[in-house]
Amino acid sequence: MNTALSDLEQAIEPLRKRYIGQRVGPYLAWNKVSRTQIWQWCAAMGDTHPEYLGGETAIAPPTMLQSWTFRDVHGDYAPGSTDQNTYEVLGKLDELGYFGSVAVSYDQQYLEYLHEGDHVHSFSTISDISALKNTALGTGCFVTELAEYFRQDKTLIGTATITYLKYQPNQTSTGAPPSSPRKIERIRPVENTDSQHYWQGLRDGKLLIQQCSDCDVSRHPPQPMCEACQSINWHTVESTRRGKIYSFTSIHHPEIPPFDSPNCIVLVDLDEGVRIAAQITGVKYDELKIGMPVRANIVEVQKGLSLPIFEVEQ
């Protein structure tokens, strides 16, 4: 850790002493489990599982767990709840400048399903406040809350461990609010006078291989001069898109959007005598083998960008 972070750490240490391990509650549900609330949840989630609303007694989807004892729209807890605010520590972090807040992980255990008429109450404990970390959003710490949920008969029906990142948002030089979210697309190739024919060929549904017009040697990727005879005269031949796997890998980590993971990549020795790197789909990564016969389809993967994508030839 560098010195800057350790100085900031000192302000957080007292919060750890004060809040970690303190169990507060009970927090009562505003309402008993009801068909109406279950219906609203199922409608919003598009959940049509027959068990929830199909029987005489409605059963709550277990994922509703945390919502039962939430505050109402005005921020008030139901009558009979404790006055202590389990989230007070988050306010203290706001005051220290870590006002950004985002839930990063969630772990819920469902011990019992709830039925219409059940009445829930909960207790909450701050279980951890991490060391300061530099994250993509900004510097901050992770705060973990453990919530326990009980039925009216005091049976523990579920637990939820929620981790929030409290952070100081990264400053940008302009300070302007971000514009609309940008969908992540594949990086587009740069097309110059040496390679434009190749990318245009793919848009036209053809895999074009450069061939020397003087000595007939094929080459890929495109380059302006034949390395065998130094001729700058060339033409293209349309590939049959057939070949054999020369080598392969599958990319598992990091996951790079927008690609699927694992993303399987092959080097293929095409029948035309050149080697090409491309994706392969329709095969599991651990089933790829050197020497497998493959054939490429030309796929428009993005508007204006077409690529050869191989599949195993049966």
Binding site: M45, T48, H49, P61, M64, V102, Y106, Q108, Q109, Y110
Partner: peptide
């Protein structure tokens, strides 16, 4: 919570009417 709800729906739709969801652990 909505994410969690959608995950629950996805899992139970696949598993069918006799499923019990015991635990969901997720990262955003």
């Amino acid at each position: 919570l909505t994410t969690n709800g959608l995950v629950g729906r996805y899992l139970s739709d696949w598993a069918g009417p006799t499923v019990r969801i015991r635990r969901i652990s997720l990262k955003l």
